[in-house]
């Protein structure tokens, strides 16, 4: 079975399961769900799985769970930090756009990294340079301006875990 067909079947099953969890069982719901899921999986289904099954699936899932908790913790800190800045009468901000370098190579890994950066303390991803693997980040409280210090300060805490999950 080719990779694209496999990916389409996975998308179809996922879409059906989510739809039925949302609406409940009923003849009309099932007919509508099958129709829409078929259209979606035929037109856009081949994007989900792009490489063959890799080894160490358990290892990767464990790190994905670890990443989830790490991310939740960082996010709690981010929210308290922003709430503190906003509630402070002097607005103690020192904004700027800095550049960091990433070692990650896969598209999915970079997407997760940039989304995590946006949701964690004081940083917001502005743009990604795919050729040079550089990420431009708006930082509400700039602590360093060099590319190496910034990479260490912002990217490193997620990168180690993400390498285990995706690469």
């Amino acid at each position: 079975m080719s990779l694209a067909v496999k990916s389409k079947i996975v998308v179809f099953v996922l879409a059906i399961v989510v739809w039925l969890a949302l609406t409940g069982l009923g003849l009309q719901e099932i007919i509508a769900g099958v129709l829409v899921a078929a259209i979606v999986s035929l037109t856009a289904g081949h994007f989900l799985i792009t490489t063959h099954k890799q080894k160490h699936m358990l290892h990767r899932w464990l790190y994905a769970v670890l990443y989830f908790f790490k991310f939740l913790w960082e996010m709690m800190k981010a929210n308290l930090h922003v709430a503190y800045i906003v509630a402070h009468p002097m607005l103690p901000i020192k904004p700027g756009i800095v550049k960091i370098k990433t070692k990650l190579t896969k598209d999915a890994a970079i997407t997760v990294l940039t989304n995590s950066i946006t949701l964690t303390p004081g940083t917001l991803t502005v743009d990604v340079n795919e050729e040079k693997k550089e990420i431009y980040i708006h930082w509400i409280d700039v602590k360093a301006t060099g590319i190496d210090e910034c990479s260490k300060e912002i990217g490193a805490r997620f990168e180690s875990t993400l390498t285990e999950v995706f690469e």
Partner: peptide
């Protein structure tokens, strides 16, 4: 706090910081 930040912070980038973090959470 997110909405307060949207009002108080100076430019569009800083406001997005408040809007994405606090409002998402």
């Amino acid at each position: 706090f997110g909405v307060l930040g949207l009002v108080r912070l100076p430019d569009v980038y800083n406001r997005l910081q408040a809007a994405t973090k606090c409002v998402t959470f």
